[in-house]
């Protein structure tokens, strides 16, 4: 078969972010990815910091002292909010990516209804649940404490 050397035209990481006229699920995909990376970064540090409890009260108190203060408090809340979103959207993704809630294959009749429409209420529900949890966390972490 004839092969031609064309001009490379892959969008690259710009294609991940998309932006502009993309739909809701595209933004959820990006946010899921960002919150996942954030949570992982926090989690790896969290393992190391909290391992200090095995060394006794003194080591624990020193470790907790290092990670207290305004910046850490806001950071901690961001982790909680990221968790709220990642968990709620994650429930949707587990269902959808195992083929639940995407609808059965149908005869495509214009205007097309796709799996995106079929799971839209699930997406809105997940976003609402994540937001509600994030607000509850804000009251707890930033107001009551």
């Amino acid at each position: 078969m004839l092969r031609v050397q064309g001009f490379p035209n892959r969008l690259g990481v710009r294609g991940w972010v998309g932006g502009g006229r993309w739909g809701m699920e595209r933004y959820l995909y990006t946010l899921h990815r960002l919150t996942g990376l954030g949570l992982l970064a926090y989690f790896l540090l969290h393992i190391v910091v909290t391992a200090s409890r095995a060394l006794g009260e003194g080591a624990w108190a020193r470790a907790m002292d290092t990670v207290s203060g305004g910046v850490f408090k806001v950071g901690e809340y961001l982790v909680f909010a990221a968790f709220a979103f990642h968990a709620a959207n994650g429930i949707r993704l587990v269902l959808v990516e195992l083929g639940f809630g995407v609808g059965r294959p149908i005869e495509p009749v214009y205007p097309y209804k796709t799996s995106l429409d079929a799971q839209r209420s699930l997406a809105i529900g997940a976003l609402a649940a994540g937001a509600a949890l994030a607000i509850l966390g804000a009251v707890e972490l930033l107001v009551l404490r």
Binding site: F80, F83, G90, G137, E140, R145
Partner: peptide
């Protein structure tokens, strides 16, 4: 693993961060 995390981290977050309410 995601489902396990959902249950256990949910519990962990509730105990550690929602204790005031």
């Amino acid at each position: 693993a995601g489902i396990v995390i959902l249950l256990l981290l949910g519990l962990h977050m509730t105990i550690m961060h929602l204790d005031a309410t």
